[in-house]
């Protein structure tokens, strides 16, 4: 490539002006343009992370299916056998659908929280939109989620729950879950930079969150009425409740549930994005 060609080629953003960030935020449009242009980086980072996690195990990538199966087994033991209460016939399918979606969100959160601090050296050396790092964690969580749906489908067929056409509406609900998970990932990534205990607290917070979300119980369980409107403070009530009703029961969910889920997910994403972008200049000096 001749030098003249390099100068003409504006593919790499050959002309840069660096000025103080207004209100702490980088210029928005160039930021997202660069983010989009470098999306291959987020994907490649996710792939190499996945490869290296199972690099030295006997089962390798098979763990992506073994994990959800074991998880399903553990909760089946816990709820169906130990509690001895008679559950509806679709309970196990409901439990799995909720668990797998919940673990997707939890994956966005734990992956997101570690994404910036573990990329330390790359952040010191290269200028790129840092948001690619937590987004890569969301992609990892999604790649881990996909095989769990195969496990779910198998269980739904075996337990005669089946899959109705309404279940297709679970896809937009899952997208809202992804939006919510991204927002949480961005928030936790920022929190982890300033407060390194975040990742240590996270598993406990996640565990409690699982128990108060409609995973082990149905979103219309009797005791929900006693809790009253407080239940709506849990974003996962509408998100996971709607997801389970659509996917497992094949019920159309009420409009308020869609609206509540959309408000929580996009609100969290907006908050996460603003917090993350306004702090990301700091990352290079805080790591």
């Amino acid at each position: 490539m001749s030098n003249a060609a390099v100068l003409k080629d504006d593919y790499l953003g050959e002309y840069h002006v660096y000025e103080p960030h207004r209100a702490g935020l980088p210029p928005i449009r160039p930021y997202f343009r660069e983010l989009w242009r470098r999306r291959a980086f987020a994907v490649e980072l996710a792939k190499s992370t996945i490869r290296s996690t199972h690099h030295d195990t006997v089962f390798g990538v098979l763990w992506n299916v073994i994990n959800p199966l074991l998880l399903a087994g553990v909760y089946y033991l816990l709820v169906a056998i130990i509690s001895q209460a008679t559950q509806p016939s679709d309970y196990f399918a409901h439990l799995l659908a909720g668990l797998f979606a919940f673990y997707f969100v939890a994956g966005c959160m734990s992956g997101g929280s570690a994404s910036v601090t573990s990329a330390g050296r790359m952040i010191m050396n290269t200028a790129f939109p840092r948001m690619l790092l937590p987004l890569s964690a969301v992609y990892i969580a999604f790649r881990k989620f996909l095989p769990t749906m195969l496990v779910y489908l198998a269980v739904a067929l075996i337990t005669h729950v089946g899959v109705s056409t309404t279940a297709l509406l679970a896809i937009p609900m899952f997208m809202l879950l992804m939006v919510f998970g991204t927002g949480m990932g961005l928030l936790l990534a920022t929190a982890q930079v300033y407060f390194r205990d975040t990742a240590s607290f996270l598993p406990y917070v996640t565990r409690i969150w699982l128990y108060v979300s409609p995973v082990l119980f149905y979103p219309d369980a009797k005791f929900i009425e006693k809790i009253g409107p407080l239940i709506h403070l849990n974003p996962l009530y509408s998100l996971l409740g709607g997801w389970g009703d659509l996917l497992v029961r094949g019920d159309l969910i009420p409009a308020w549930m869609w609206i509540e889920a959309a408000l929580w997910s996009f609100g969290t994403l907006a908050l996460g994005a603003v917090v993350f972008m306004s702090r990301e200049r700091d990352f290079a000096v805080r790591l």
């Binding site: 840069h16 000025e19 103080p20």
Partner: peptide, 11 residues
């Protein structure tokens, strides 16, 4: 990597 607090840099 670290934008200036005041002033400007053109590259």
């Amino acid at each position: 990597i670290l934008p200036p607090t005041t002033g400007r840099i053109v590259v």
